[in-house]
Structures are given as structure tokens and as C-alpha cells.
């Protein structure tokens, strides 16, 4: 599977989605890990904002959400 890997050096897109500067890791002030699903019409349909390092949806959770669209 191919996917683009954009970087956000100023955290401005992280700020747009409300996840900038919320986690300390590797001695840095980094973003909160988060997953969003946007449907074909560009509407935000799903969001999950981590509350711990490992808190993220499993691949099957994401597939199930995509099937709902």
C-alpha cells in the first residue's frame, strides 16, 4: 500500500486538528498521536485522540469505520 508521508515542522496542521504540543517523547514536546477518517465528500467522520503512547485504533477498527462510510 502506498501512502504519502507529509511532515509538519511548525506543528500548524497538528494545531488545526488540535493535537500539537501535547506529548513528551524522546525528550521533545511532540504532538498527541491521533487518527481521523474523512469521507469522500471531505466530511470528518471519525476521530481518536490518544491518551497514552500506545492508545491507537487497531487496523480492524479502521477498516470497520471505513466500511460504515
Amino acid at each position: 500500500m502506498n501512502y504519502p508521508l507529509p511532515t509538519d515542522p511548525t506543528q500548524t496542521v497538528n494545531a488545526l486538528y488540535g493535537v500539537a504540543f501535547q506529548m513528551r517523547i524522546h525528550t521533545e514536546v511532540s504532538n498527541r498521536p491521533a487518527t481521523f477518517i474523512i469521507d469522500r465528500e471531505g466530511i470528518l467522520r471519525y476521530e481518536r485522540r490518544a491518551t497514552t503512547y500506545g492508545d491507537r485504533p487497531k487496523p480492524n477498527d479502521i477498516l470497520a469505520e471505513l466500511k460504515k462510510l
Binding site: 506529548m23 504532538n31 498521536p33 487518527t35 481521523f36 474523512i38 469522500r40 479502521i62
Partner: peptide
């Protein structure tokens, strides 16, 4: 559809 993942 887009899955947007913010990693650190």
C-alpha cells in the same frame, strides 16, 4: 476517503 494519522 482519507485516513489521516498523526504519528510523532
Amino acid at each position: 476517503a482519507v485516513v489521516l494519522v498523526f504519528v510523532y
